[in-house]
Design a protein around this nucleic acid. Structure first.
Length: 456
RNA sequence: GUGAUUGUAGCUCAGCUGGUUAGAGCGCCGGAUUGUGGUUCCGGAGGUCGCCGGUUCGAAACCGGUCUUUCACCCCA
């Protein structure tokens, strides 16, 4: 046997049924995106390294797939550099392109590059694969799809309200009820950090706080201490560790806690606006939850932070996330362009729908009629009928070879094709067709008109 | 990147503490049945036991490395 074929770690093949299910999710998301006024764009699967590097933190840089330069790339590297074997330094010499790590940074690049042609506020959506050199595990792949919708050029909080509704609309349409849309605001996190005098440790602080439901208050405190946040400071935010009540209660508690921080108060105000609006407009199937521990986030979020978790009982992590970023296009030289956006993790949504058996009605595209092939003459006769069937939109095909009847019928069975048309000498002489129902086994001789009528 | 875990036929898996020519079920191909399927019966093909190296008289089994699978951490969709 030849070498056993396989695909790289963390990648997957998708067979027809899987593609059908994935397309169902894609088209649902796409419909809702367009319903909300977004327009599609696409960007290259790889970008210049400088566009991507440094945008996702050190951890992110490590996870970016680098593309080797073409040609004799090593020849151009200094011997001295090769000798010290510093991978980081050599990488920038031998690789100038990298695979897309997410859709937001390429989008920022796109906006800056096309700023003169874009009508602002610009609402775009994008559904494309992204790549991460991560170690795969449950619900985590090295190649996966993101479905993003972003608005740039508007600071309106109404937009943030709409994204909550959009999440709810998509999940409701997928019949995925019981999702939780978690909402937070970076300004609140900054406010808290300010109150405790750990403004410079905002990232460490938020990353630790984010783990509250996973490692508990003790674990969080331990991690904060190890990052150099003082005992005294931690004591001040103690209330956060047992935060409860409904969204309004939480808002009021935050209001008190953040009194001394101007930024924090602004965050509470923003959050209150969004929460009030969503609560008065109502959601179909999702629950909106203010979660102060929500800190995931890419370093560029500056306002709202979203994260969607699957219904209780499905252990898959988040199935979507997003937020507001005021400074993103600034990196590429376009200032004062606020953006807010969300992302759907297609592959994870797939896993959740599968686990909850919500794919029932997704039909695999397959032919309805198979013409049995008895030979050249018969095949030619069948091809004529096929034209009529196909013109009427009836998915149909001719078995390509004049194989044994048994084999051809078996093929119809395996593919669950409901009708088979048998044409031999007799049928050709009489100008008719023998139609067989593969489910009931019934068969009858009929005209082309009957054939079209019955199989439609 | 850290720590575990998995790998035997196309698929799901047996294969005892190292011991002849490595098995089963399903699937595939052919026949019983040359214009009638899903059932049944008969026959057949298909394996460098992930890969490389080591220990041994002898390795699918033991050891090392590597790749792969799954999982946790880090981080994230």
């Amino acid at each position: 046997m030849a070498q056993k074929p396989s695909i790289p770690k963390g990648t997957r093949d998708f067979s027809p049924t899987e593609v059908a299910k994935r397309n169902y999710i894609f088209s649902t998301i796409k419909q809702v995106f367009e319903l909300y006024g977004f327009q599609p764009i696409e960007t290259p699967s790889f970008e210049k390294s400088e566009t991507l590097m440094g945008k996702y933190g050190d951890e992110g840089d490590r996870l970016i797939f680098k593309i080797l330069n073409s040609g004799d790339y090593l020849n151009k590297v200094d011997d001295s550099l090769l000798k010290i074997k510093d991978s980081l330094k050599i990488t920038s010499k031998i690789s100038e392109k990298a695979l897309r790590y997410d859709l937001t940074v390429p989008f920022a690049r796109y906006v800056v590059q096309h700023q003169n042609d874009i009508v602002f506020p610009f609402k775009r959506y994008q559904m494309q694969p992204v790549w991460r050199a991560d170690r795969p595990q449950k619900g985590r792949f090295r190649e996966f799809y993101q479905c993003d919708a972003d608005v740039v050029g508007s600071k309106s909080l109404w937009q943030e309200v709409e994204f909550v509704q959009l999440y709810d609309a998509v999940f409701s349409k997928l019949k995925l009820t019981g999702t939780t849309i978690k909402l937070n605001n970076r300004k609140i996190l900054a406010g808290i950090a300010e109150i405790i005098g750990a403004k410079d440790k905002l990232i460490d602080f938020t990353v630790a706080l984010d783990k509250l439901d996973k490692i508990g208050a003790e674990g969080v405190i331990k991690e904060m201490l190890s990052k150099g946040i003082s005992q005294d400071a931690i004591h001040k935010v103690q209330p956060l560790f047992q935060f409860n009540g409904n969204n309004q209660d939480k808002l009021n508690q935050l209001q008190d806690l953040l009194e001394a921080s101007e930024e924090g108060i602004q965050g509470v105000k923003d959050l209150r606006f969004v929460i009030d609006a969503v609560e008065s407009l109502g959601l179909q199937s999702a629950t909106l939850e203010l979660d102060v521990t929500l800190a995931r986030g890419l370093n560029y979020y500056t306002g709202a932070i979203y994260e969607v978790t699957a219904p209780e009982g499905v252990k898959i992590g988040s199935i979507g996330g997003g937020g507001r970023y005021d400074d993103l296009t600034g990196i590429f030289g376009l200032n004062d362009m606020s953006g807010v956006g969300i992302s759907f993790g297609l592959d994870r949504i797939y896993l959740v729908l599968e686990e909850l058996h919500l794919f029932d009605e997704v039909a695999l595209p397959k032919p309805k009629v198979l013409f049995i092939n008895f030979g050249e003459l018969e095949a030619a006769y069948c091809m004529k009928a096929l034209i009529d069937l196909r013109n009427k939109g009836i998915k149909s095909e001719l078995y390509p070879d004049s194989a044994k009847m048994k084999k051809q019928l078996n093929y119809a069975n395996r593919r669950a094709i409901p009708f088979v048309v048998i044409v031999g000498e007799n049928e050709i002489v009489n100008g008719n067709y023998t139609l067989k129902n593969m489910l009931t086994g019934e068969q009858k001789v009929c005209t082309l008109e009957d054939l079209l009528k019955i199989t439609t």
